[in-house]
Design a protein around this nucleic acid. Structure first.
Lengths: 227, 227
DNA sequence: CGGACGCTGTACCGTACGGTACGGTACTGC
DNA sequence: GCAGTACCGTACCGTACGGTACAGCGTCCG
């Protein structure tokens, strides 16, 4: 099984078209679509499909990898950075992440990978894990390091801080989306969530005063201690 | 389809035995197990199975509901409460939740519900959602209210606070578990995570000084502001 | 005793799907 | 013109599974 492992990007235009169809079908039907349906919609023959991707698993894997390769995160120039830039950078990161997470494509991919992880049918879970949470923390870590080097934040444990950031940003959005809840946050809702999460994160890990938002999160950036 | 909707608890001992077998199979194989396999392992006939549960969906639904009914959360006596009690209560809650979430049974149930939510095959997603995150916040809300009434915490938005608590506690544990990551936190790791999450939560939302832990979380409960 | 009932085990049916084979067609290079 | 290649469309095969039917068996109750 898993005959052909495409070196990731020597995919022809036609092959990418097919994968796009597969992705659409994943969004519409989850794991339930058949190879025949792919062929019908993509106007290609089964034989070609099997020649290109080996078997169904190969097709799924190729689709997931191809899609995962498209996800990119906003970065941050290294060197000294101002508090405002740092904060904006975190917010941009959070907005980006939340937008991806709450999207139908991400949900479809995660659903697929999760159900396969349960059946031990393939390594899709591993792939999505690597391109999801792990990629996020991987991209976020250098940003955190820049912040720390600039004296804006400090961590006892970088990993714990990354987990905390993840939790504050994602909250229960992802699990609810995956379980089929239809209410999707508006772009402004995402923005608000991201700002609140970053504000809270900076309360927990920030060392210097960073421009506070007007109304996000707990409103007050720090509770008025003592009753 | 979905012929018989068991009023939730008029299940015979024998029926519960069968559901236990189904649950085991879910943990082992995800959604891939067949009705025949259930019968073989439970030593019952297909006909009986279909008489009792209508169809495959009915069996799955019954299993999920039966299992969901078993989950209970630690509560908190109402009335005035001490800071230490409040904090311990939150920690107990978090430990309980993390233990459930990272367990194989919960993972199997969530995987099942998630994959069905993707295919629109049934209402399992809705059921798990109601007995998962929503049940958690439902149980947590009164605890928060007691805390607020006792002047220990204050919220601008109760919903936002619940989301924050969820995020701080769960982090990325659940999604990683669902995606098949095998490393499971030890009981002491869960304890540590829970304490750190609660400490952070109280930093964000607490009004009064609450006994700080020795070393949990960011170590210092509040960063020494200003460089 | 005898019929009704509930259950087990097995054989069976229809279907749907993954995977293969094959005929037909367009294009390319010689 | 012709072999080779790459692809489409479709027919086909084997299998596995959901669901049904039926025979056999123990138990309860009149």
């Amino acid at each position: 099984m898993n005959a052909i492992v495409q070196p990731e990007s020597d995919l022809s235009q036609r092959q990418r078209e097919v994968l796009a169809v597969v992705l659409d079908l994943m969004v519409e039907e989850g794991d339930a679509f058949s190879m025949a349906k792919v062929c019908r919609r993509a106007s290609c023959s089964k034989e070609t499909l099997y020649n290109w991707f080996g078997d169904r698993d190969g097709l799924l894997t190729a689709t997931v990898q191809w899609q995962a390769a498209k996800v990119r995160m906003p970065g941050l120039r290294s060197g000294q950075v101002s508090p405002a830039d740092f904060r904006d950078s975190l917010i941009a990161f959070a907005v980006n992440w939340l937008t991806v997470i709450t999207g139908d494509v991400s949900a479809a991919l995660n659903r697929l990978a999760i159900s396969h992880a349960g059946s031990g049918k393939s390594r899709l879970g591993e792939i999505v894990l690597k391109n999801g949470p792990l990629a996020m923390t991987g991209r976020l870590r250098p940003i955190f390091e820049i912040g720390a080097a600039s004296g804006l934040v400090s961590f006892d444990s970088m990993d714990a801080a990354l987990k905390t950031f993840f939790g504050l940003v994602v909250g229960d959005w992802q699990i609810r989306k995956l379980l089929g809840e239809t209410t999707r946050p508006s772009p402004s809702g995402i923005e608000t969530t991201a700002e609140r999460a970053v504000t809270q994160f900076l309360v927990l890990y920030g060392t210097a005063q960073i421009p506070a938002p007007m109304e996000a999160g707990n409103t007050r950036t720090k509770p008025t201690h003592g009753k």
